[in-house]
Structures are given as structure tokens and as C-alpha cells.
């Protein structure tokens, strides 16, 4: 079930759903909440590495972080977003979801029309700023304002509670964009063994 505006407001009042700071109540629409572009960015850069190694073979010889650069803007400043660039940003708002509510993110129509895209799901019980993995699909650069309401989250209820922290999490209470922790995916150790076996690698 999608949460309506009244239901969202009820959850906020009961402190089950936390959004901090909520600069304007008008950010809460009939069926979604608008979230603002935060102050911190991780931008892909050309580094000494030939590519970003997100494969099972990355033994930290080519750390993913070496292909990203951190940059920060103040509220009201702008950020120039180049064509085909992927930028990791965060929402200005820190959120905490109830255990039985998850959220789906999409770009607000005004920004979608400019060629920006985002797609993500926030799990029940998540707390932290929302990670915004943005891509400029346009052929021209876009200048964006920090603090502008860019994405919207729709909230859905589950029939059963789910505890986000039942296991160790890669991202806990994050307040700025965090580099992909793909190398920490547990499946890699099995996939690596299969790869070694198929290639007769014995070391």
C-alpha cells in the first residue's frame, strides 16, 4: 500500500518516520516526499587506473575510490554536471524509515525532463541520508543547485516488520556519499573459486 500524505504526516508526528531537516512541509505531496540535493559529491575522474574494477579480481590493487574525487558545496551554490557523468550525491535530508515501510526513489519530473535519472529503493528501517546515484543522460552539461528538491520518494508499507540492522550493513547512518563497497559482496569469494577452478589456477 502506498502511503498517502495524511499517513506520511501521521508517521512523522509519531516519530516513526524521521526526516531531518524538513525545510518545508510542502515537500510532502499527496503520495510522495520531495528530497533535496545535498552538499557533498563524489565525482568520477580519470585516474591512473585504466578502468574502475568492480569485478571479483579487484584485490584493492585498483581501489574504486581512486576513480572518485570528493567535492563539497554550500547550500545555494551550484554544481556543474557533465554529460554522461555519474555523480554520487546525498539528499540534504537525513531520514529514518519505520520497520514496515520502504521507499522507491525517482527523479522529479522537472529534472527528468533535463535528462537526469536516478533509481533506488530504500529498505525498511534504513537511517541516513539518501544516496543519490545521478547520471546526466543529456548531451549538454547541467548546472544544479544544492538544496533544490530534485528527487521524490514514494513510501510503501509491508505486512511484516523488517529489521534493517539484523546483519552488518555496509552503509550505516551515512551523511555523505560513500564509494561503492561492491568488493565487499560476499558472493565474490564463491565466484572467485569457480573462476580459479575453471581456469586451472591453483594458488
Amino acid at each position: 500500500m502506498t502511503l498517502s500524505k495524511d499517513q506520511i504526516l501521521e508517521r512523522i508526528k509519531a516519530r516513526e518516520l524521521c526526516i531531518s531537516p524538513l525545510l518545508e512541509e510542502s515537500q510532502i505531496g499527496d503520495m510522495a516526499i520531495d528530497f533535496r540535493l545535498g552538499t557533498d559529491f563524489l565525482v568520477t575522474i580519470h585516474s591512473s587506473n585504466p578502468f574502475i574494477d568492480a569485478s571479483l579480481n579487484n584485490d584493492d590493487r585498483f581501489p574504486i575510490k581512486s576513480s572518485f574525487q570528493e567535492t563539497r558545496r554550500k547550500l545555494g551554490e551550484t554544481f556543474l554536471f557533465h554529460p554522461n557523468q555519474t555523480v554520487l550525491a546525498s539528499s540534504l535530508e537525513y531520514i529514518k524509515l519505520p520497520k514496515n515501510v520502504y521507499a522507491e526513489l525517482s527523479m522529479r519530473s522537472s529534472y527528468l525532463r533535463l535528462g537526469l535519472s536516478v533509481s533506488a529503493i530504500i529498505q525498511p528501517g534504513y537511517c541516513g541520508c539518501i544516496s543519490m546515484e545521478l547520471t546526466n543522460m543529456n548531451k549538454v552539461p547541467l548546472n544544479l543547485t544544492v538544496g533544490a528538491a530534485m528527487i521524490q520518494g514514494r513510501f510503501f508499507t509491508l505486512t511484516k516488520d523488517s529489521n534493517y540492522f539484523f546483519k552488518k550493513r555496509k552503509y550505516m547512518c551515512q551523511v555523505r556519499p560513500v564509494i561503492s563497497a561492491v568488493a565487499g559482496d560476499g558472493d565474490f569469494k564463491y565466484l572467485r573459486e569457480i573462476w580459479k577452478k575453471n581456469n586451472y589456477i591453483t594458488e
Binding site: S20, Y94, N163, F165, K167, M172, Q174
Partner: peptide, 25 residues
């Protein structure tokens, strides 16, 4: 509501992040 055993790295990260966001907000 954290069910896994937290280590110093987890607690340090949480406290640091929350201080940073409190100031930012």
C-alpha cells in the same frame, strides 16, 4: 535495534556521522 555485534569502527562511524549531520542541519 541493532542485532549484530558492533565493533569500534561501527560506533565511531555512527557517532562521527551524527555529529556532522547535527551541525550541518
Amino acid at each position: 535495534g541493532i542485532e549484530f555485534k558492533m565493533n569500534s569502527f561501527n560506533v565511531y562511524g555512527i557517532v562521527n556521522n551524527l555529529i556532522e549531520k547535527s551541525i550541518g542541519n
